[in-house]
Design a protein around this nucleic acid. Sequence first.
DNA 1: GATTTTTTGATTTACGTACATCAAAATTGG
DNA 2: CCAATTTTGATGTACGTAAATCAAAAAATC
Lengths: 340, 340
Amino acid sequence: MRPTVHDIAAAAGVSLATVDRVLNQRPGVRHVTREKVETAIRELGYVRDVAAANLAKGRTYPLVFILPASDNSFMHGLNAEIRQAVLRSSAERTDIRTIEVPAFDPAALVAVLEGLSREKPCGIALVATDAPEVRAAVDRLVRERFPIVSLVSDLTGSLRHHYAGVDNIAAGRTAARLLGRFLGPRKGEIAVLAGSMLVRDHRERLEGFTAVMAEEFPDLAILPVLEGRDDPEVAHRLVADALGNAGIIGVYSLGAGNRGLIRALKEKAVDRVLTVIAHELTAHTRAALIDNTIDAILNQDAGHEVRSAIRVLKAKADGLAVIEAQERIRLDIFLKDNLP
Amino acid sequence: MRPTVHDIAAAAGVSLATVDRVLNQRPGVRHVTREKVETAIRELGYVRDVAAANLAKGRTYPLVFILPASDNSFMHGLNAEIRQAVLRSSAERTDIRTIEVPAFDPAALVAVLEGLSREKPCGIALVATDAPEVRAAVDRLVRERFPIVSLVSDLTGSLRHHYAGVDNIAAGRTAARLLGRFLGPRKGEIAVLAGSMLVRDHRERLEGFTAVMAEEFPDLAILPVLEGRDDPEVAHRLVADALGNAGIIGVYSLGAGNRGLIRALKEKAVDRVLTVIAHELTAHTRAALIDNTIDAILNQDAGHEVRSAIRVLKAKADGLAVIEAQERIRLDIFLKDNLP
DNA sequence: GATTTTTTGATTTACGTACATCAAAATTGG
DNA sequence: CCAATTTTGATGTACGTAAATCAAAAAATC
């Protein structure tokens, strides 16, 4: 049986009230007494029963999710997963609020973050726009002891406690190797479609992609990046234009807005043998994978990211450890054979 | 605020004791009264606070894991993950016991299963050997209301509540497509190394593999399956022998015992361009992936499988729903770029 | 040594549920 | 209609922790 507060009280030779004062860092305990209690806690290996404590406190976990107001399938999916989490709120004692901020707008994000220090949520998850002022705002909140996790796109160099998202450099590298291996001995040019080079996840994917291409597939030349702003219409126009180049034998779409890419491919490349790798499994990319318009899809599971972010924030709020392996968000690789 | 037992008592116009009798299916409640209470429960949307209930009951979840006594890295890994789970027992209120049974031995497995109905665990996870008598034993336990999940290898057609493992047909199909695409236009023969055709997961992988090969890569011929019994020594001998055949351009290792495969490849195929796909990420396969002996690894995350099995068994024991998407075990595809 | 201040103990209530007991009410059987 | 039985209510204790109150003891101050 695991030890209870009574056991530590007995072991430390103090009363229950004193143990409580130590555990909940209430004042009025002499230093030596506090030490005695802490020793007993360590020696008995006491860990507070979080369920019982939450019951007694009537505790809930007010969490805030900050998302960019982007109109693409991935963000819609992420939103849907958060709504699912809201449905589980009562069982999980969470109280989740989402805030939408304009995409690619550091100032707006900072403004929202500033506002949060008054509201006192017990945890914050944000899809970070990568900018110094955002980093500074996040660091400030961390210093005010708010648990913070970055979601989908990381904020390297900041003090955020955790990143719930995939390793985007690895994703880009993986895309490059898949494309290179699928193309085999063929020589030619590769078109790259991104959302924006202003967001870290896209930059990192490109970085990984170009690195492996340069190291291992010198016969494949990467064309200048097309920035589709994660918008299907823009993507369509850019890709349709680019496909005028007959030397293109492969495409890597590392952002969102794949509806436009797929349409362009179906219009302009029916007669050509193109190898295409795209990110994010959506209804559109799934259909394209099945009909062979796309050869592989790299995906991050938004549901896992949301659930992981919640678990981590709750654990941090309680000062508990997380199961690292469980919280690692994996890069999913889908061929038409292993679709869920 | 979510409703409590007091709220249903008030709403149904009965006492707390009666609500309790209904909730815990104790006798001594007239049919009409029971209906009143159940209506109130439904209308208020009451759900029992599992944390509080467990606290009151002092409940623990005695779980049994039944594993084959196989000496390969995957099973060692699975065991290690179960030990990790045991370390978390006190926090998760579980009480986990593992039982090892001889591998590929339906009778031994059945004997253990029979013994369990006396022991009354609140959940059973087993790596199933695929045989009618095992199915029958499992079905009997399910009828006795034991929650049961199959682990790693499924028991199709049985009444088990859940399967915590990958879709092995999809895994085989994926391996075939990867191999086919990596080989490109080359023609030649493919060696397949399996553990045993007596276990369902291996049969299914082979089935998926041959299906896609036949449909889509007619230039690649599959050689007769080598059965290595998941034993590195046997695998080494079989593969070394097979590589005498100069027509082999690809290898698919769908079972365990990859140490032997890798050794054979390093000895016999240094001068050849072989494309190799193997299952299960272990220290050995990881090293082989990095040094280009293996081209891709298909993996199931043993940690996820164990944690998922535990979550599902607990949920079933409490009669609660599981988050389906969370419990789906995904097929991991590792290239050297996205290793964890 | 008396007084103030700080520290500690003892005790109670609460959280939401489980479970047991005993008495009271309602229903059933004869 | 009375007795036997079943059903229901009222109440208390427990689980492990939080949080509050008030009294008692110890330490610090003068």
